[in-house]
């Protein structure tokens, strides 16, 4: 891969890490449980892209499956917490 491509992708990777940190601020502060879940959801969506970038840097396609399973588990987690908030499981 050309150097300039790698440079741009590195920049994108660090922007994504900054996004995860920024959402984490809301995760700590968030006054209610729902706020924290929104922050967690935003972190996960950024996290999927982070994992895909790590797959590119390590040059391993198998990490894409990790990203998919991560997204699936977080989806189930958000649904479970939403059910819990709504009527206590």
């Amino acid at each position: 891969m050309a150097d300039i491509t790698m440079l741009i992708m590195n920049a994108a990777f660090y922007i994504l890490m900054a996004a995860v940190l920024l959402s984490f601020v809301r995760f700590i502060k968030g006054p209610t449980c729902a706020d924290r879940m929104v922050a967690l959801d935003a972190m996960t969506i950024a996290g999927i892209s982070v994992i895909v970038f790590i797959a590119v840097f390590a040059n391993r396609a198998i990490y894409l499956d990790v990203a998919m399973v991560y997204g699936l588990l977080s989806f189930l987690g958000v649904i479970a917490v939403a059910r819990y908030l709504e009527k206590g499981l």
Binding site: I15, L16, A18, A19, V20, L22, S23, V25, R26, V38, A39, A42, I45, A46, S49
Partner: peptide
């Protein structure tokens, strides 16, 4: 994605 995280804050 970064703008979305900014919005969350």
């Amino acid at each position: 994605i970064f703008l979305g995280a900014l919005g969350v804050v």
